[in-house]
């Protein structure tokens, strides 16, 4: 039944099919389940990520509305939603890279901007100029800078850790190569090695599988599972729906607001996916536009 639902959804991603008859009747939603459903009973310092009423706007245009989220430790979590849903914005706002209009974010019980040392970050590949004159090893060593502080230089121990991380992603033969001479999958693996070198407990990855070859993709997933075995929590912005079902323990369904969050089997249903990907958000977008004009 789930498969046929997916097939239907695939067929219906064409806009003219998006609004079905039954959806035209306005449905009054019941109270959404509490955000801390999956973190009940945990001490505050043990909850890797807690978000309350997060709203983010780009040039007065709201991109994320009132996000409430509490993430349990030791899980591999995928963030999925259509393009423009605010997935990358969510990650950046959590890390404090973007200003927020309201709400707070806590990482292991402390304010997010103050506790970034427990976070490892893999940004999008396009965020960087790959002609920059550095080698692969230089980039991975950057992951150790957080542990070093302002005046120290990386020492032998840091180099050893960096080499170990390069080994893990099978990029050690390329350690001395300048980063422009790498394929997309290799660049992604370098970024991953850099995040591993940070030795964090909470990882954020922004589309690590975009434009990557199949061999790299399966090796990345293997690495993520390994991290999860060690008790790390990993949040991954993901763009591909079919693989999302297989890769992740839990899913965040996002489309400007949080549609749902929970174990993959519970959340990956036709109705919930339709709510995420279906284009019934015109009212929200129009209100957003009115807010923007009002602020000018």
């Amino acid at each position: 039944m789930l498969l046929s639902g997916l097939e239907q959804l695939n067929n219906m991603l064409h806009p003219s099919f998006m609004v079905q008859e039954k959806d035209k009747i306005p449905r009054i939603e019941t109270t959404p389940p509490p955000a801390n459903r999956w973190t009940k009973g945990l001490a505050v310092e043990d909850i890797p990520l807690e978000i309350h009423d997060l709203t983010v706007a780009y040039h007065h245009k709201p991109v994320l509305y009132g996000i409430d989220l509490a993430v349990p430790p030791g899980k591999l979590i995928g963030i999925i939603g259509p393009n423009g849903a605010g997935k990358s914005t969510l990650i950046k706002a959590i890390m404090g890279l973007l200003p927020t209009d309201s709400g707070w974010v806590q990482i292991f019980g402390k304010n997010n901007r103050k506790n970034l040392k427990r976070v490892g970050y893999v940004p999008q590949r396009e965020s960087v100029d790959w002609d920059f004159p550095v080698s692969v090893m230089d980039v991975v060593l950057m992951g150790r800078y957080g542990k070093l502080g302002l005046f120290k230089r990386p020492g032998k121990e840091d180099r050893d850790i960096a080499s170990a991380c390069l080994e893990k992603v099978k990029m050690m033969p390329y350690a001395d190569r300048q980063i422009a001479n790498l394929s997309g999958g290799q660049q992604q693996r370098v970024f991953l090695a850099r995040a591993l070198a940070q030795e964090s407990d909470l990882y954020f990855m922004d589309e690590p599988f975009a434009g990557v070859d199949a061999a790299t993709e399966s090796s990345i997933i293997g690495l993520l599972h390994e991290l999860r075995q060690k008790g790390k929590t990993i949040l991954v912005v993901h763009h591909d729906l079919p693989t999302a079902r297989n890769y992740f323990d839990m899913l965040v369904l996002l489309n400007m607001r949080l549609v749902d969050f929970g174990p993959t089997e519970e959340v990956f249903t036709y109705e919930k996916l339709q709510k995420t990907y279906g284009g019934r958000l015109t009212i929200l977008s129009e209100v957003a536009e009115a807010v923007r004009q009002n602020k000018e």
């Binding site: 950046k92 890390m95 404090g96 890279l97 970034l116 040392k117 976070v119 490892g120 970050y121 940004p123 965020s127 960087v128 100029d129 920059f132 550095v134 230089d138 980039v139 950057m142 992951g143 800078y145 957080g146 070093l148 302002l150 230089r153 990386p154 850099r194 940070q198």
Partner: peptide
């Protein structure tokens, strides 16, 4: 190393 990281990847520099 701070200059290097900020020049190469300011978002990542912020995160470390």
């Amino acid at each position: 190393k701070e200059l290097l990281t900020v020049s190469f990847d300011p978002g990542f520099a912020y995160s470390v």
